[in-house]
Design a binder for these strands. Structure first.
Lengths: 331, 331
DNA sequence: TAATTTTAAGTAAACGTTTACGGTAAGCGC
DNA sequence: GCGCTTACCGTAAACGTTTACTTAAAATTA
């Protein structure tokens, strides 16, 4: 059996209260007994039981993160930010891969509730009513990352998607492009889909460029869909000279499609992505894209989660375009 | 305050023992009282406290995973496999990003011990003595993934690196290449470095091809180092027609370097990678590489961890070459 | 019907901590 | 020497469960 605090107490000839006080650096013992107790602890290899402690303190120093897909590049970067900040603050993080599955999500919410986590971060996921209510019932801090909720008043941290998309499109326009296509997410996706499409349209409108439904292809943010969308775009609107992809992954798909068809990027076609995930700089050519500070958002989200100052404010993080080699100036 | 079991007992007019029995599907109550209790539970929104339960049952249904870098592609895929299997078995997983930092690793081991996790998976990390001893003291199951320990008898699950490297090299040889370079990891890295280099050398030796120190450049498995190594290789041994990279990321670096220098892959240079991470199929051209079944290894590792049959055997997973377009046959 | 077994339920100890409270001895001021 | 504070430390309750043990009633058997 693992040694417990009373084993330590017995062996050191003191009460468990004293051992506990020493462990928690509370006052109430001489330096002499402290040393003796510490020696016993080392000797028998005692480690406090965080479960028992959690039970009385009602604080587990554990938090949960829900994300639709842990293995996406975006999630990886976010997770690292979260883990780093959590570790610094002394928290452990439980990962929950929801797979965008509602049933699985409620299961996770339940587990996290039962495990008495001290806080929850929800990333990239639309907050259904059931989730929000479950969260409310738990009475613990929650923060949303890369998403928002209009129904529930939960602090969030994200980028201004519409504006970012606007700027990406404007960037292409300023490079002389007039026939610009977009590879977007679903319009039903109120978080990462619609706003980016709106930003794109707004920019075209402001510069009096043609907007047609044909110029937008709808993917699901993944690589394969980028390929398919690029194909679609080229068949319907062969005159386009540039495309804005709503995710780097789809931009990579577009890049691959172009390569296969012998279309040179950026000479024949300019591509701008979104996210600035790690592989954006590894592509051929390196991808110009709008940078979301995902790692920092991860960090900030746990800092918000455990912020000691009362009401936490949502944060709109700054984005910016990182210029690489997938966009060419034309005239 | 959150409702407790005694709140439901009181409200239902039974003892907490009965409520507990109902919750745990133990015998000892009528269907009538069961329904009544369940109703109360629903009514007041009671959720069992897993911390309290864990204290008495000495079982937390929580496990830990240690990895050097959560945001690497390899780790992402592995993590997903682990999380999936864990979720299926009812376990939560705590992630620990060690950053290859010894101090941080022991910290994590401590936290996991205190939190009474039921098992630990260690991935891609050389098991220092201190870790092994800490692990031993915890008396809980451990499994190693993508790594081994010779000093500690801990079950592992990995690929035969030397053989895989041998086959990758042989593949190049069979495609007619005679001047083959390698971008390897460090020789000090007994897990992913040395064996792959040995496999490479063995293949060259078996086919009577030239082996020189010049033909091996040493990277750290990351993208940047792939670029640097490719540069190095070309300066020292311009005659090479093919290279075997010990990781896909380094292969991507090599690809980028070639692109910048106007060297066509696979026409002027063939490249084979290692890992078959998600981006291997997204590169231009798609990367031929040796596939490690990382997701499955993740799954299997937790199945091993919580396997009920006595002694668990280590597993060598099968690898295979996936042919894409970065290697060309020459004569 | 009486004896016996089975079933439904309650009581209380245990899990390993933290912590409020109390007690004793020492130190101090007068 | 007496009262008071302070420092050190022990006792025991509490945290929310599970579970061994007990008990009373119901069901079964003879």
């Amino acid at each position: 059996m693992k040694p417990t605090i009373s084993d330590v107490a017995k062996k050191a000839g003191v009460s468990i209260a004293t051992v506990s006080r020493i462990l928690n650096r509370l006052p109430g013992y001489t330096e002499e007994t402290r040393k003796a107790v510490l020696n016993v602890i080392r000797e028998i290899g005692y480690k406090p039981n965080a479960i028992a402690r959690g039970l009385v303190k009602k604080h587990t120093y554990t938090m949960g993160v829900l994300l639709p897909n842990i293995s996406s590049r975006l999630a990886s970067a976010l997770l690292k930010g979260i883990e780093d900040a959590a570790h610094r603050l002394g928290y452990s993080v439980i990962i929950c891969n929801t797979d965008n599955d509602g049933r699985r999500t409620v299961e996770y919410l339940n587990v996290l509730a039962e495990k008495q986590v001290d806080g929850i971060i929800i990333a990239s996921e639309w907050l259904k009513d059931a989730y929000g209510e479950a969260l409310l019932a738990m009475k613990i801090p929650v923060v949303l990352v890369l998403t928002v909720s209009y129904r529930f008043q939960i602090p969030y941290i994200k980028v201004d998607d519409k504006q970012a998309a606007y700027q990406a499109t404007k960037y292409l326009i300023e490079k002389g492009h007039k026939e610009i296509g977009m590879i977007g997410g679903s319009v039903q996706d109120i978080i990462a889909g619609l706003p980016r499409i709106e930003g794109y349209k707004q920019a075209l409108a402001d510069y009096n460029l043609t907007i047609t439904d044909d110029r937008i292809a709808f993917g699901n943010f993944a690589y394969e869909s980028g390929i398919r969308c690029m194909d679609e775009l080229f068949q319907k609107v062969p005159e386009i000279t540039a495309v804005f992809a709503a995710s780097d992954e789809m931009a990579l798909g577009a890049l691959s499609f172009a390569f296969r068809k012998g279309i040179k990027v950026p000479d024949d076609l300019s591509i701008i992505g979104y996210d600035d995930t790690q592989d954006a700089e590894m592509t051929i050519p390196p991808l110009t894209t709008v940078h979301q500070p995902v790692y920092e958002m991860g960090k900030k989200s746990v800092e918000m989660l455990f912020s000691t100052k009362g009401a936490v404010e949502s944060i709109i993080m700054p984005h910016y375009i990182v210029e690489r080699d997938s966009v060419k100036k034309i005239n």
